[in-house]
Design a protein around this nucleic acid. Structure first.
Lengths: 341, 341
DNA sequence: ATGAAAGCGCTAACAA
DNA sequence: TTGTTAGCGCTTTCAT
């Protein structure tokens, strides 16, 4: 019982159909040189035996893989699930197949990248970890790939992301205009290009409105975000002088805070104004409705996928400077209100 | 610019290191016959050139693929995202790589299954569509695979699922015990084994409690569930004699209903009791908290993954009758209350 | 301790 | 219209 499934080969088909292996190959590829009679006979036999062409063997003959690697930090995050689905659609439409790798740390990331390259995937779409290993960079720089959302400078490659800085700036201005000053920003790691850009946007809002930032609070997230958002918000609200408004910089933190605020029975927006990040469906009906930074994440992923697949198909070099920025915008709902003193 | 990336081969390494191809292969595989000096030289050259072994070529020599195909109907569903993550972890730990296919209809499903088999993946974990094509069944029956959640009888294979019937029965009894009689069940397609079993559970609750089912309402879902849940609930509540309680049989329907009830400003549980399906994080804080059927979906996926990978690794025939059922249980929160007349 | 050669399943160039 | 043959990159005899 060691080798349970013997795959049918072109040779098996050839023997039964009484033709040569190459005739089988040509018949199944609808080569015009093969007679209709032979063709149909071969096809009949192939289908009867359940013959499925061996892609690895074809790859050795120069055929390109149908595999597109997608590296994500977390698939349970609605954000990334949307990306996976959009890209999967994209791949599917263009005859590719998505290989999903979930890697949260540089070691796993390096391993998965190596495996994808070893499998000679057609290309890799990567949402990078914060500090990829040197090895990973070297590998990717010699392999078709494109960066999504997070941008690592040392990769000499195309990047598709959102206007992180702009959108956090806009959200923060909204709070400032409502009169808030003690605003807390709870963001992701500054080691990520996204985390860093969002923090800059937060600060720029104060600057552009000519408001002193001394009352502002900044908290940055560790990799394990599950508990972090909850802890951060609890600590903040227990301060002698708690913030009157909060703005977040990652979806997971936003979700954790929604849950915590509900548990703590904080009244929003009366006791606290809150601007979330991302646009999971439940944000619409959380309490008074969540004012949030909505991202056209599906568009972004689709744009990225189409661009990438097109370049791969046309054999162009994809590792070139190219960047595309999708615009996130503020959607105002009930969770933010003017500060009354 | 047609062929941008030339992959480094063992031969390239051999030439530079001044050894033969076979020596390169042995050195990199740490074959004891190769001298330490040669080994280190070869390894140095290989790493300097960025050599990554060609898996397709190895597969031709009998190496098995590191690819595990996962076929899901929808990755944005929290349910399936959890499965994907759990399986991805599982694969990662055991040296495999997840290939994700999203297929909602039998044609796409057939195409993806064919592609996975063509790539000679190590195996396929499938959440089947309702009516798979004959072709798909034939292919799978000759290929290592395992069914998850939905069970198609004609596949002669292992299955890992949940106690669909039991759990819907339990949820329905909860409502009956609270005095409800005009209970509406909004479920998934009866063409799915899961949808059918859940309906049976709904009915059995009445039967076992000796309660007449004439007031019960049953509605079944089409494939495109996004709008369906919303429509169903609106239609139900506009009836002259609307139900006093609702129980659902799919996560997506549950989520759609949560949103619709919120929009319609229906007061839960005062105007309507509601038992949801699944356990997305937001169920905890929706309105009064959602009474829901919680499923140990992560455990299920992990169990399935471990079993499957173990069987693949040990070369055992996986297409055997084997079934494993994980127990879902009712979690009572605020969305269900006794009916006062 | 290392090299030469065969062969995995397939396609394409060359023969017939 | 079809068959024969070479070779993709690798591992594994077999030979040295």
């Amino acid at each position: 019982m060691t080798q349970s499934f013997r795959m049918v080969t072109a040779r098996d088909v050839a023997e039964i159909a009484n033709v040569s292996v190459s005739t089988v190959g040509r018949a199944l590829a609808d080569d015009p040189r093969i007679s209709a009679r032979t063709k149909s006979r071969v096809k009949e036999v192939a289908s009867r035996l359940g013959y499925v062409g061996n892609l690895p063997a074809r790859q050795m003959r120069g055929a390109k893989s149908n595999l597109i690697g997608l590296m994500l930090p977390d698939i349970r995050n609605h954000f990334y699930a949307t990306i996976a689905e959009a890209l999967s659609d994209c791949c599917s439409t263009n005859g590719y197949q998505l290989a999903l790798s979930i890697a949260n740390d540089p070691e796993t990331e390096a391993r998965h990248v190596t495996e994808l390259i070893s499998a000679r995937a057609a290309g890799i779409v990567i949402v990078s970890t914060a500090q990829p290993k040197r090895e990973t960079r070297d590998l990717l720089n010699n392999f078709p790939h494109v960066q999504l959302l997070r941008r690592i400078d040392n990769y000499n490659s195309a990047w598709f992301g959102i206007n992180d800085e702009e959108c956090l700036c806009e959200g923060t201005k909204h709070l400032l205009e409502l009169g808030h000053r003690r605003i807390a920003y709870i963001g992701g790691s500054r080691e990520l290009s996204t985390g860093s850009a969002r923090r800059t946007g937060f600060r720029r809002a104060f600057q552009e409105m000519g408001i002193d930032r001394s009352e502002a609070i900044e908290i940055f997230g560790p990799p394990s975000y599950t508990q972090y958002g909850a802890n951060a918000i609890q600590e903040l609200l227990n301060r002698p002088n708690p913030p009157t408004a909060i703005i977040t910089g990652t979806i997971r933190v936003t979700q954790a805070i929604l849950e915590t605020l509900h548990q703590m029975k904080i009244s929003v927006p009366d006791d606290l104004s809150f601007v979330g990040f991302g646009d999971a469906p439940e944000f619409k009906w959380w309490g008074p409705g969540l004012t949030t930074l909505c991202m056209p994440i599906e568009d972004l992923a689709t744009t990225c996928g189409l661009w990438f697949l097109h370049h791969i198909d046309s054999g162009k070099h994809t590792n070139q400077q190219h960047s595309s920025v999708a615009k996130a915008t503020l959607t105002i709902r009930g969770s933010t209100a003017a500060l009354d003193r």
